[in-house]
């Protein structure tokens, strides 16, 4: 289990997320409303912040990574729902030196990854605010491109994720979503050892109940 770096708390995305999270969590207590969900199928859009698990990844791609995600969810029981999602992220960075201290040479990099996710959520209550936990598998398609050199690495790797979050019904159809996730995507070895493209991410989003 990796601990979250202190720097993480300084990320600007953290505070809005925390604020929204607390807001949604406290709403049921404020309203006292308890209603059953009226829809079984949801479509939603979410955006978030990824904190890569691997130090090498964070060093090479030091800019913030903001993934976006399209979700589809189907409730298959009172407590259980299955979902699928397509996620995309892109960032840029620079190569690092294997032996610091020598004459330096850096190359600009571009990183893109699309992930298809399939999982199951377990709802912990049926109130207006629905906390949930979930897990699933993912297939990630990534592409690392050297912008100053004819070097490109493309690959496809499977992984898994666990997540926890909550959903708050804003209106009849509309739900707000907050979700904390840990994903692991082992991607083989690179020049500096084993590569894992996963990490910790926080998502905020909006879901719409279709039927």
């Amino acid at each position: 289990m990796r601990t979250i770096n202190v720097k993480f708390y300084r990320r600007r995305a953290f505070w809005p997320a925390l604020f929204l999270g607390l807001f949604f969590v406290s709403l049921p207590a404020v309203t006292g409303a308890v209603e059953k969900p009226r829809q079984r199928f949801f479509i939603g859009l979410a955006a978030g912040y990824l904190y890569p698990q691997q130090g090498d990844f964070r060093e090479i791609y030091s800019k913030a990574i903001w993934p976006v995600e399209l979700q589809l969810e189907l409730a298959v029981g009172r407590k259980i729902s299955v979902f699928s999602a397509a996620r995309y992220m892109e960032t840029s960075g620079n190569t690092v030196l294997l032996f610091p201290g020598q004459p330096a040479e850096a190359y600009a990099l571009n990183w893109r990854m699309a992930t298809l996710r399939l999982g199951v959520n377990y709802r912990l209550s049926s109130s207006r605010f629905v906390p949930f936990v979930g897990a699933g598998a993912s297939a990630s398609f990534y592409r690392e491109q050297w912008l100053d050199a004819p070097l490109t690495t493309e690959g496809r790797k499977a992984g898994f994720f666990v997540q926890a979050g909550g959903r708050y019904r804003l209106q009849r159809r509309w739900h707000a979503l907050v979700q904390l996730e840990y994903a692991s995507v082992p991607a083989g070895s690179g020049p500096r050892g084993q590569v894992n493209l996963g990490g910790l991410s926080l998502f905020l989003g909006l879901l719409a109940g279709i039927f």
Partner: peptide, 17 residues
């Protein structure tokens, strides 16, 4: 001659000065 290796996640190249 001095050499350096620049690395990304998946690739690396050598530069010789």
């Amino acid at each position: 001659a001095q050499s350096q290796i620049s690395a990304s996640l998946f690739a690396s190249v050598k530069t010789v000065f």
